[in-house]
Design a protein around this nucleic acid. Sequence first.
RNA 1: GCGCGUGUAGCUCAGUUGGUUAGAGUGCUUGCUCGACACGCAAGAGGUCUCAGGUUCGAAUCCCGACACGCGCACCA
Length: 1059
Amino acid sequence: MSKDFSKTYNPQEVEDDIYKKWEESGYFNPDNLDGEPYSIMMPPPNVTGVLHLGHAMENSIMDIMIRYQRMNGKKALLLPGTDHAAVATQAKVEKILIEKGIKNPREELGRKKLLNEIREYAENSKSTIISQIRKMGTSCDWSRLAYTFDETRSQAVNTVFVKMHEDGLIYRGHRVINWSVKGQSTCSDDELEHIERPAKLYTFKYSKDFPITIATTRPETKLGDTAVAVNPDDKRYQEFIGKIYTVDVGAKNPLEIKIITDSEVEKDFGTGALGVTPAHSPIDFAMYEKQKAKNDPIGLIQVIDKDGKMTAEAGVNYQGLSVDKAREKFVNYLKENDLLEKEEEITQNVGTSDRFGDVIESIPMTQWFIDVNKKIPGKNKSLKELMQEAVRTGHNNNPKQKINITPKRFEETYFSWIDNLRDWCISRQIWWGHQIPVWYRENNGEKEIFVGENKPKEKYNKVVLLHAWGSDPTEAFFPWLKKELEDLNLHVEAPKLPNAENPNYAEWLSEFKKLNIDEDTIVIGRSLGATLALATAQEGHKFGKLIAVCTPLENEAIPDFFNDIGEWKFDKIKNNISEIEVLHSTDDPYIPNEMSEKLSEKLNVPLTIVKKANHFTGDKHQEILDSCKLWQQDPDTLDTWFSSGLWTFSTLGWPEKTKDFKDFHPTNFMTMGRDIIFFWMARMILMTTYTLDEIPFKDVYPHGMLTDKEGNKFSKSLGNAMDPIDIVEEYGADALRLSCITGISPGNDLKIYPKKIESSRNFTTKLWNIGRYINSACPDLQNNIPKKYNLTTTDKWILTKLIEITKEATADIEKYDFSQASEKLRNFTRNDFADWYVEVHKIEKNDAILIYVYKQIVKMWHPFIPFVTEKIWQEMFATDKNNLLMVEKWTDNKTLKSELDNPELENNFALIQELIVKIRNIRSTYNVAINENVTITLVNSDENEEIKENKEIIKKLGNISEIKIIEKDEIQKQSASDVVGDLKLYVHLENVIDIKKEKNRIEQDLRKTIGYQKGLEKRLSSEQFVSKAPENVVNQERDNFKKTQEKIIKLEEHLKNLS
RNA sequence: GCGCGUGUAGCUCAGUUGGUUAGAGUGCUUGCUCGACACGCAAGAGGUCUCAGGUUCGAAUCCCGACACGCGCACCA
């Protein structure tokens, strides 16, 4: 095998090849693995751009788990995917378009074009994300790649929506919702970001003779007040309760203010009375509903509209004003009328939209909601209760279906969130997302509604738009219409008929015949366009429906045209067109009303008069669309978390009954940013327990956020953003991965900075270089430990440690303590194996043990730093080119012990180590150069066998030329001395010994030792300690005392001899 | 306001059920090319474990309080 060991490991040169090799092996795909299934669904990154460091951490965590499980013989699946991220992506693309100069993308582009723009952006982003995930070495199964907005996932969304609707859990309701004026959409309670800002609190009366003073920070909303609420126990206001006062504050109508009670009102805050504005405050709206339930209703007046402007209800003085202007004006009104009592500066928390950044307005609207409190049919449990149960006792109280959250404290956070949870508003007015699977149509004045997984079948599926006078229908004829119709997924043709000046019937007819018009077609024609359609029907051309708008049957200006049509035969027309509607616009400047009247009369169909069918205005008029009698899908889209909530099972092909679903659900492990516990984790639990009657995952690990060294979150605006790919390119993916998990503790933030990454990189190089040494020092790398072998002290020591560390690292990974695991492995690899065992190997040359331990180390490191370990494996240990480390067996403690087959491992190496360190210390103190010969004398009174056995090691590592061992202590002149366990050490330093320095050194040691001994003495002389502390502790301390005593004697002796 | 987390070496963090003289990485000092590694090796300095109280024979660890920082939640009109 070729050995490719460069001096430093170059990740840039090997990572891509290694990843390719893994991918081609097929082992990313669990279908090619055996064993028990183990699954993790990757939290799908938003297609709003590129991955950031947080994703790198998430990928590291998941990949450690999946590689570890794969090496443990599991059928391991890490399923990758991306999230269309509804509002986030649309907001992002709109921002880009605005920067490009498109002022109002929604209006200027329309639904279809804007969606195309977003789609294009999303696709780009997706492919970037995928390549980034590859770069990080994540071993996910690309053959199962999913996207929240693809066909399969959309099917799951619709299926769940319909099921919830059937169960009455999804309803359409008119309620106060959170409205972003800037985004022109609702948002859920969780999408609000509360920010603190200074505000003014105004205390005032509605009118001079109104008996109660109230306070508010939003005076302009007071134009919509319908009640004043006081605490039922408040003595001050008893006499007013139930009374209605009519006040005129300048709104359209005088306000009818009813005095009501509500225990939520705090007596001690402000005046203890609260002006109730049901339309513009969720709390006030709740009061409105409570009053309604009590059969003591209060009014609801909407004074702010969707654009953040005052409505007509607010009165002529306010209508059309912005909220801020109206506030100013209203406060002025109060001042002028001497109604304002107080004006105070306070700080206030306002909810802002987390995506659009503007202050959220509370507005009453009809929206779709998920009822979290209603009992699910057949369950006697609400969605809230399902969510609680899964984490508290297990789904259906089954402990095996219990979700464990690491760290545990997040369980409380989760429960308190559920306690405060209100019905979830799921409809959004943005376009990028799953359109709500509800269709409406107008049928004979009746609104029909259809809720289903797929669009109901249309009667007609094609539309042809015809205009007159050679105009381009897409420009002159209702410019919006083509777009609207196409948005309904219809095939639309809009041909321009020739010869504008003098329309020629024969010519038009031949053009008409080229069109693909049949019984599935609706023809919408205005003026001569419609006339032409009638004429062709008369000639025998059959089609589905004609909507004739302002249609002339004769025209003096172009007699030839009508002459060529000939005599109208209305019976024939009616036979060939299955449905006809006649519309006339009141302000069409060209076609007189009578024409349409005549047509409707002749055809015996009603004439519909519409406003503004003027082809020059482009104003929408719903009548034409309604006339098509098409199913129109609810234009709203679903909250993005609706689809994310289905992620653990929609990714497995549900609602199809797939094998994947059977094998891999519930998933074993899930991780996500701590910040989306509510958004996502909670929603997955809700959706999955409801839909599948099982939990989505067994263990969930919400991780903290990555920050820079100062603890700031990474962000573009702060300018501290680090691109994970830049890091991969500079330091390698392994270094990035290792940095992302060293120092994490569950749920806490983690600081990451270049020095840390460098340090991780240095470690991977270290691991590589150990391999490089072994590769050059050991002739046979396939050398296995022989059946019979004699272990030296060092062998025993390193194997004992290996067993210990294997046990601990395994346990740490099992409990998701990745940092602990890697830290232990790092210390073992560097401080024990490299610094000591490898050095000893240079003397003892026990290749088999060296290789064995190294192999285990490389295996254990693989989940953390897969590239360098795989490369080492390929260079050193792979038995053939298909042998990959990624599917080698993770060695657990049990197999390790049986492989070693040596029960008598023990640790006697510590003494040797200490001795060597002391020798080095003395050498260093006296600046003894390496090439200078130094000899030592050891007083080995207790005949420590290890010393004799390991003389060579002491010599080599301590750089000693000779060791003399004596049994009885004799004063060694011209030497430095120390005490190591039972041993006394003399380092002979004939020419360099400095009595003063040596005295200092010993005295310092002595001082420390005596201090320690005194502490021991105190403890041991305390009767309390001796009688109450456990025996083993007391004995240990006694033993320590004895040893310390001996050490002190030796040190004192030496000190005496020095003087 | 309520809740949670954190506070240990200059910096970033470990520290198991309380039990010797509190550890690692990094930085710092000193010395080094000894069979791989200067992205390295060796030796060393560096800590009132935020503060105050309590429980205990014994506290970085458990309890109570204070302070600082961070985060989450909240309807103070």
